[in-house]
Every structure is written in structure tokens, then in C-alpha cells.
Design a binder for these strands. Structure first.
Length: 927
RNA sequence: GGGCGCUUAGCUCAGCGGGAGAGCGUCCGCCUUACACGCGGAAGGCCAGAGGUUCGAAUCCUCUAGCGCCCACCA
């Protein structure tokens, strides 16, 4: 079946994806007869579209799933999306304020006000807000699903999950209740990170620190008794309103007198004690620090150690409260301005210095976070972390690349309790009910009707939802139906691989390992592959504001998804980042075009020559094989008809099959090591340079020739190669390979997706043949170089003289004269040990031969002279280096035998080349 | 303050103990009946710097410089 002249990705991609899906090829089922290979998708947030990072990670996962599927595993890729509690909040709230969600609001039956005033979530109320969340989810969740499909992701869509759906909610409740019953979850007052805009607590991980240019204020606190003062330094003067002490280092000579005394807190006129605490840095500022336990983590600890009072001076919206005295009800920055002003007026502001320090920002909305005292739910982590550290230490779970292990350990060994409650509405509501009468808390799976302590029916469910990462932590088993006893998790858990970005190693990877070990008593996955972060071509983060975003779907439109997938795989080295440019994608698009045309060529030649006689082939068929089908597709089997199986057959066949076997081995080895770039580049090299540049050119002789047997043989090899190339490439570029596969005259399976992944044949690997072929290539290249340098028109034929003493080389040239004719436009090839250089013939000198191409007209002696000199210098340098080694007694004594042999061989070759070059240069001077 | 990574051809990057590689770009020829999304040829590098280990180092170790990232309660 002939291929159209150009490949149309648009049509093919949609067609084949539906084809695979409707034939159930993506589905993974419990199958005791096969080994499972499962991947659980890192669920994309339902906060918009898929970006290049998603495209990369899902391409990699799909490559592995397709590879393993073809390799005989029972594969299952569990897809799904994440409800992304706080991230969705931020986006919805922004949308409400800008009135961009009116259509969704109408959809959920909310009465949308006519006037264009900004809406807030409080206008809607909790019920409508959650409804809006689901409407949002339906819109973006399906968008993501569509984009994953566009990518070609072969997910088992029957098993699609959402972190907030019913089954996942059951898992979340079960885990919460059990952790509570086991004493891992507690509720308490702590100093936490508070986002004044989101109005919720955040974990440390959700706070992004940013170096900020600020001021360091030196403030005098007068002694309560007698004259004098102590000066403290602070970056946040407004928080002094909540100071309950001053701290100095216990061994700071300057302040020994002060310890235990009292100072007057300026502006508030409050007496506060001076305490000694080891946490104070003598070198920083004045060595004396104000203690504000209500608004600083370190101060909170100091206060606890010394029994200092805790005063909060800020409200949840970061305005000052009644404890701020005269400064109540001000925005925090306004309060700062006034405090500083008044201190200055009172002569208590000693000086102000410029100071760079790290300021925490909300990860989702970038608002400056505020440390506040608040009542929250926490998970005690230390005990959960221990086994999770062990499984990495023991190697039960592998990290690739393994440098991330250290990062993981550092965090896990210093792990702190995890605040899991959030003052948000979109998320898993905490399964805890507070008794309005006795204040007891009831934590249960089903909504209770009465307080478990006093029996009062006056109970209210906790208002908070859980950190979005809480449900993510359960994902590897919740997607398999846990806590139900499903056959799925018994078969597919633990999965073989997690592929993700290193940016969520703490947020997600660590927590999955802890939860998996705790609830399943087993690791959640055997290996974690950390893919590189996608940057633009200059190493800049892709961002809308910078305008350097490369959108996967736009690339699909322009170049086809296969081109993007191929590029991502080819660039995916195991570094920390990947630089991607549109140019790269264009380049791999060209590779696909090359593949397409090579396939077109092969199929053309299989078809044209299978036609019965009477229909002369358009490609040089002379009809001598009258009546015989030269390519018997029906009887074709994978390796049937290939003589080289027994070490026979033409040089080029044996060579390409040897190269094929090596390529298969390399591809498998690279994929097994997650070296996607190596795998992709190896295939690129083989397909383009070995198969297209050399083999297809060489095989034309037989295809266009008149010997039917030779034709059939070539056809079988061609078919075998094309089949294997398609199979090898399919995981990387699934669409185009299927499109071609469907037109193979003897395809072995209905779809390439279930074709067997090629297995290398050791008996086909033949180093001798590869060396011989290389000689042929070198000779042909030499002739081409001369012709090109001397500007011989490509159409013009020329005689070629080859001087070679080696009988094998002579034989090789004799046997393959046609190749010289076809590939180097040689009208005649004269080879022998005593071949004389014809007059006016430029030459190229190889280690084992000299090539001359006599030219009519003028010779560019200078150019040739320069080239020969350069070659000579190189050869001499090479020779010198080798000889130095061989003259070294230590080398001869200590280097391995084969290395010494190699050096000796090199020395011989270099010496011969040097001699030949010297001779030729001499002759050149004379001519 | 700790930790990690990077520095190889004009650009983007592979290679990570035994003869310096790719893609793009550049230059020179070619519409050769699969492909101009192509074919053929060429130029271009003291592998950041300094020490060390080794018979042998772009590759391993130490230090230095520049760039980047992560973590951290110096207010």
C-alpha cells in the first residue's frame, strides 16, 4: 500500500488514538499470567491547561508504558486529576473579582448580580462556592483529559480518578480517622504561616522565601529602673507592639547586668523582662533581640522556654487588633510607618540600615505571609518518617538520578509536624464534629448525630478542609480503590515507577512513601524518576509574563504531537533542566519526514515488485521474473527469508542487520535506565544515517536490478528493517508509526501498539562486517571529498584509482564496484597494490589505501597541499602520542593487554599513513 | 549559614578513566526517479583555571572563579 506524499499528523493522531482506545489497548487488567507494570499519573491540577512540563512527564510515562506493553507486561496507567484546593481557590476568587466566571455561576444556578462589582467567595457562600468548584473542575478536568489524549497518553481511562471524587474521599476519611485514632493527628495552637489574602494557614513548603531589600531598625528600649536603654534591631518594627521580652545571649559580656532586669516597651509603656537565651546571635545587630512570640517563630520558641506571654497584635487580615493600643485597626504597613515615625519623634529610633532578608510569600497568591498563632490540625511526622527514610537507605525504593536521595534525607531527618487544616471551602472537609455544649471533638467516618462525649445533638462539623497534598499522599493506593479490598491494588500495588519533577519531592513523593508504608505496609513504587525541569532555550523559566512559553498544543498544531514527543525524549538527559526551543522541534519534525519518506520508499518497492507480470514495475523491472511474485507478503514471517540469519548474504544486509541488533540492544538498555535522550538519539542515528544514508542507497542496486532472487532478498530485509524501526520508535512517536504500520503488506499485528518490542539477535552482530563496511564507506567518502573539493559536477562520472596492498581491500573494491558507481559516480574503479597515481589526480590518503581521482582541467594544487599537510600533522601527532605510550615501561607493565594491542595497532596505522602522506606530499612538490 | 548542580565547536547540549561528539548555525557544491522537511562535502575545540591521583584524565579527588538552584527561626 503506497503512502501519500506527505504525512498529515492532524488526521492520523485523532484517528489512531480512537482506534487504540476503542480496541481496548490502553486497558490494564488483573492478569496472573503476566507481570504487571503500572504507573500512577501525577495528577495535574484542575487549574488550567497542560504546560510543557506536563507534556514532558506524560510523554516519558507514555514511552515507558508503551515499551513495557510491547514487551509483554500487563501495563496499566492510572490517570486522574487533582482538585488543587488552594490553587483553585485563588483562581476562582480572581475570576469572581474580575467577573469572568458569570457563565459558570449561571450554570450552577447562582443569581448573578447585574452590576459589575467584584464578587467574593463570601458573596456566594460555601454551598455555591463548592458548586462553582465542581463546575470549574468539570470544565478544566475535561480540558486536561483532552490534552492528555492529544499527547497520545495511553491511559486506562476506565480508571480515571479525581482527588475529590467519592472513592478518593472515602480513602481520605479513612486515613484521617485512623491517623487520629492512632494519635498521629492532633489539634492545637501553634505559630503558623498565615496568608492574609487566602485567609488560611499554610505549611512551610507553601511559603516561598524571597530575598528582599528591606530596613533594619535599631530601637531603644529604656530600662525600667534607672537611666539608660538597650538597643534592639528588627526588620518589623510594628510587631514590637506585641513584644513580651528582650533576649540576649547567656554569655554576652555586654549584657550580663541586664539579664533578669526589666525594660520599658516603647509606645506601649509595658514592662518586659530581659532573658538569656542561647538562640540569640551575639554578632547580629546589637546582640539584643526583641521577643515577639505572637509573630515570629524563633521568638515563639524563646517565649516558651522562658514562660513569656504571647500577644497577637494582628488580625487574620493582617490589620492590627485591639492589642495594638493606639495603633489598632491599621494595615500592617501603615502600622509600621506610624510606629517608626513615633519612635523617631520620641528619640528612640537610633538608626536605620539597609538590610537584605528573606521574606515569605504565599506560594499561590504571592501575598507576604504572616506568622500567627492559630488553632489548627496537625500530623505528627517524625514517627511516620522513620520507615520512609529506611526504604531509601536500603534501596528498596530507588531514586533516579540518585542525587535526590540526599535532598530527601535532609528534609525527612528534620521533618516537622504538618499543619493539614486549611480555612478554605474547596477540598476534603475534615471529618470532625465539635460539640457546641461540651466542646468535645468527635472524629468518625460517618457524620454522627450526637457528641461522642456528652451525647448532645448540638454538634457542628469542623469548617476546615484538608491540605490538598493530604489526598495526593494517598493517590498511589486510592486510585486502586483502597480502602476497599480490590483485586487491583493487590495486583498493581506497588507500582514500578513514579515519574515526577524534583520540585515536589517533599510536597508529594515523601508523603506518598510515608502514607504508603503506614497504610499499605508496602512502598508505593519501586523507583522514582525525577525528570528535568523544562526551561526556554536560554535557561529561563517559561512564564506568561516573559512571553517565552512554548505551548504543547500549539506545537502539536504546527508540527504534530510526534515531533514534540520525539524532541522531549531526545532532550531528556538526566540533568536538572532541559532547554527547549521551537527550533529543536522543527528539527525532529524533519526526522519524522525522513522516516515517512523512507517508509514510502520501502513500501513502494515492496508493492511495485509484488505485482504480477504484465504490469511492469515503474522502477526498472525488466520482466525477467515473469509470473513470479518477487515479494511474497503472505508467507512473510519476521525473520523468514533472511539469509543473514545463517551468516550469509550480501555485505550491506549483514551490516545493517548487525547495526539493527546493536540499536535494539542500546535502545532497550537506555530505556531501562531512563536515558531517554540516549534511546532517542541512537534511533535517530540508526534510522537516518545508517538506514537512509547508506542502506537504502546500497539496496537500490538490487531493487532496480534484474535478478529476481536478489530483489526478493532485499525486499525481505527491507521489510524486516522497516517493521523493526517502526516498533522501536513506536513508544516515542506512536501516531506516525501506526500510520505506516497499517500499510505494511505483512504486518504481524492489527496495531503496532501490541506488536512485540524488538529483541536483539546476538548472532546478527558481526564486528568484522561492520569494519569492512566502514572501509567501504571511507573509500566512497574519500572519492566524494575529492570530487567536491575539485568541483567536479555531480552528474559527471570519473575514473577512480585505488592503491591498496591489502588483498581484502582489493577484493572488497572488486566485489562492490557497483557501489562506487552508484554512490560516488565512478565510471571505472582500478584497484591494486601497484596502482600508479595518474597525472593531475588529487589524492586522499587513508591508513590502508590511497585514492586518486584523475581530473581533466586544472588542479587546485594549493588546496590539496593544504589538506595533505593537515592530514599529515594529525597523523604525526597521533603517532607521537601512541609512541610515547608504547615507550613507557610503566604503560606496558600496567595497562591491560587489549589496550596495549590497540596502541600497537594504532601505531602501525599512523606510521603507514604518515609514510603515505609524506610520499604524496613529495610527489606533489614535484608535479 | 548549609547543601546541590553547571562551566566541552558561534548557539543549545551529549559524553564522565584509554584515539574530542551531535543538532542547529556557517561555508562550498547539487531540484541525483523516497525525501530541498532533502543530498554530498568542508571549516570550527590547550573539554572554565590551578594543583593532585593514575601507565593514562574532558572524564576521579582537592582548591579557585563565574553562573544557577534548593534548604535554613540571624531578628
Amino acid at each position: 500500500m503506497e503512502l501519500p506524499k506527505a504525512y498529515d499528523p492532524r488526521e492520523a493522531e485523532e484517528k489512531w488514538y480512537s482506534f487504540w482506545e476503542s480496541n481496548h489497548h490502553f486497558e490494564g487488567n488483573v492478569n496472573p499470567h503476566k507481570k504487571p507494570f503500572a504507573i500512577v499519573i501525577p495528577p495535574p491540577n484542575v487549574t488550567g491547561g497542560l504546560h510543557m512540563g506536563h507534556a514532558l512527564n506524560n510523554t516519558l510515562q507514555d514511552i515507558l508504558i508503551r515499551y513495557k506493553r510491547m514487551d509483554g507486561y500487563e501495563t496499566c496507567w492510572f490517570p486522574g486529576t487533582d482538585h488543587a484546593s488552594i490553587a483553585v481557590h485563588v483562581l476562582i476568587e480572581r475570576g469572581l473579582a474580575n467577573r469572568e466566571l458569570d457563565d459558570l455561576l449561571t450554570e450552577i444556578g447562582y443569581h448573578v448580580p447585574k452590576e459589575k462589582r467584584p464578587l467574593t467567595r463570601h458573596d456566594l457562600g460555601r454551598e455555591y462556592f463548592v458548586k462553582l468548584g465542581w463546575a470549574w473542575k468539570n470544565r478544566y478536568g475535561s480540558r486536561i483529559r483532552g490534552q492528555l489524549r492529544a499527547l497520545g497518553a495511553s491511559c486506562d481511562w476506565r480508571r480515571e480518578s479525581f482527588t475529590l471524587d467519592e472513592a478518593r474521599s472515602r480513602a481520605v476519611t479513612e486515613v484521617f480517622v485512623r491517623l487520629y485514632e492512632e494519635g498521629f493527628i492532633y489539634r492545637g495552637d501553634r505559630l503558623i504561616n498565615w496568608c492574609p489574602r487566602c485567609q488560611t494557614v499554610l505549611s512551610d513548603l507553601e511559603v516561598e522565601r524571597e530575598e528582599t531589600e528591606g530596613q533594619l531598625y535599631y530601637i531603644r528600649y529604656p530600662f525600667a529602673q534607672g537611666d539608660g536603654f538597650v538597643t534592639v534591631a528588627t526588620t518589623r518594627p510594628e510587631t514590637m507592639l506585641g513584644d513580651t521580652g528582650v533576649a540576649v545571649h547567656p554569655r554576652d559580656e555586654r549584657y550580663q547586668e541586664l539579664i533578669g532586669k526589666f525594660v520599658i516597651l516603647p509606645l506601649m509603656k509595658r514592662e518586659i523582662p530581659v532573658v538569656a537565651d542561647g538562640a540569640v546571635d551575639k554578632e547580629f545587630g546589637t546582640g539584643a533581640v526583641k521577643v515577639t512570640p505572637g509573630h515570629d517563630q524563633a521568638d515563639f520558641e524563646i517565649a516558651r522556654r522562658h514562660g513569656l506571654k504571647v500577644i497577637s497584635v494582628l488580625k487574620p487580615d493582617a490589620t492590627t487588633n485591639e492589642h495594638a493600643g493606639d495603633y489598632a485597626n491599621l494595615d500592617r504597613y501603615e502600622a509600621r510607618r506610624r510606629v517608626v515615625e513615633d519612635l523617631k519623634t520620641q528619640g528612640l529610633l537610633e538608626r536605620v540600615e539597609q538590610h537584605v532578608h528573606a521574606v515569605g510569600h504565599c506560594q499561590r497568591c504571592t501575598t507576604v505571609i504572616e506568622p500567627l498563632i492559630s488553632t489548627q490540625w496537625f500530623v505528627r511526622m517524625k514517627e511516620l518518617a522513620e520507615p520512609a527514610i529506611q526504604v531509601i537507605e536500603s534501596g528498596e525504593i530507588q531514586f533516579i538520578p540518585d542525587r535526590w536521595i540526599k535532598v530527601y534525607f535532609d528534609w525527612m531527618r528534620n521533618i516537622r509536624d504538618w499543619p493539614i487544616s486549611r480555612q478554605l471551602w474547596w477540598g476534603h472537609r475534615i471529618p470532625a464534629w465539635h460539640c457546641q455544649d461540651c466542646k468535645a471533638v468527635t472524629v468518625v467516618r460517618q457524620a454522627p448525630t450526637a457528641c461522642s462525649q456528652c451525647g448532645s445533638a448540638n454538634i457542628r462539623q469542623d469548617e476546615d478542609v484538608l491540605d490538598t497534598w493530604f489526598s495526593s499522599a494517598l493517590w498511589p493506593f486510592s486510585v486502586m480503590g483502597w480502602p476497599e479490598e480490590t483485586p487491583e491494588w493487590k495486583y498493581f500495588y506497588p507500582t514500578q515507577l513514579l515519574s515526577t519533577g524534583h520540585d515536589i519531592i517533599f510536597f508529594w513523593v515523601a508523603r506518598m512513601i510515608m502514607m504508603g508504608l503506614h497504610f499499605m505496609k508496602k512502598i508505593p513504587f519501586e523507583r522514582v524518576f525525577f525528570h528535568p525541569i523544562v526551561k526556554d532555550e536560554h535557561g529561563q523559566k517559561m512564564s506568561k509574563s516573559k512571553g517565552n512559553v512554548i505551548d504543547p498544543l500549539e506545537m502539536k498544531e504546527k508540527y504534530g504531537m510526534d515531533a514534540l514527543r520525539c524532541t522531549l525524549a531526545a532532550l531528556c538527559a538526566q540533568g536538572k533542566e532541559m532547554r527547549l526551543s521551537v527550533q529543536d522541534i522543527e528539527g525532529y519534525k524533519k526526522f519524522l519526514n525522513k522516516l515517512w519518506n523512507a517508509a514510502r520508499f520501502v513500501l513502494m518497492n515492496l508493492e511495485a515488485l509484488t505485482q504480477p507480470s504484465g504490469h511492469p514495475s515503474p522502477v526498472g523491472h525488466d520482466g525477467s521474473g515473469a509470473g513470479a511474485k518477487r515479494f511474497d507478503a503472505a508467507s512473510f514471517s519476521e525473520s523468514g527469508g533472511i539469509k543473514t540469519l545463517r551468516g550469509e548474504g550480501p555485505l550491506e544486509d549483514r551490516w545493517i542487520l548487525s547495526r539493527l541488533s546493536r540499536t535494539i540492544m542500546q535502545t532497550r538498555a537506555s530505556l531501562d535506565r531512563y536515558e531517554f535522550n540516549q534511546a532517542a538519539k541512537g534511533l535517530y542515528e540508526f534510522v537516518w544515517h545508517d538506514f537512509c544514508d547508506w542502506y537504502l542507497e546500497l539496496v537500490k542496486t538490487r531493487l532496480y536490478g534484474s535478478a529476481p532472487h536478489a530483489q526478493a532478498e532485499a525486499q525481505h530485509v527491507l521489510h524486516h528493517l522497516l517493521t523493526n524501526i517502526l516498533q522501536l520508535l513506536h513508544p516515542f512517536i506512536p501516531f506516525i508509526t501506526e500510520e505506516i504500520w497499517q500499510r505494511l503488506p505483512a504486518k504481524t499485528t492489527d496495531s503496532i501498539i501490541i506488536a512485540r518490542y524488538p529483541v536483539a539477535r546476538n548472532e546478527w552482530i558481526d564486528e568484522e562486517i561492520e569494519r569492512t563496511m566502514q572501509k567501504l564507506q571511507m573509500l566512497i567518502t574519500a572519492i566524494r571529498t575529492i570530487r567536491s573539493e575539485m568541483n567536479v559536477p555531480p552528474q559527471k562520472q570519473a575514473k577512480v584509482f585505488i592503491k591498496a596492498e591489502d588483498r581484502q581491500v582489493q577484493q572488497l573494491v572488486q566485489d562492490y564496484k557497483t557501489f562506487f558507481q552508484e554512490l560516488a559516480r565512478a565510471s571505472e574503479v582500478i584497484v591494486g597494490p601497484t596502482v600508479e597515481r595518474p597525472k593531475a589526480a588529487p589524492r586522499i590518503v587513508l591508513e590502508w589505501a590511497e585514492v586518486f581521482v584523475p581530473l581533466e582541467g586544472l588542479l587546485d594544487l594549493q588546496q590539496e597541499h593544504r589538506r595533505l599537510r593537515q592530514d599529515l600533522e594529525e597523523a604525526r601527532a597521533g603517532l607521537a602520542l601512541t609512541l610515547r605510550k608504547l615507550d613507557n615501561a610503566d604503560f606496558l607493565e600496567r595497562a591491560p593487554e587489549e589496550i596495549i594491542e590497540k596502541e600497537k595497532r594504532k601505531a602501525r596505522e599512523f606510521r603507514e599513513k604518515v609514510q603515505r602522506l609524506e610520499q604524496n606530499l613529495q610527489l606533489l612538490q614535484g608535479s
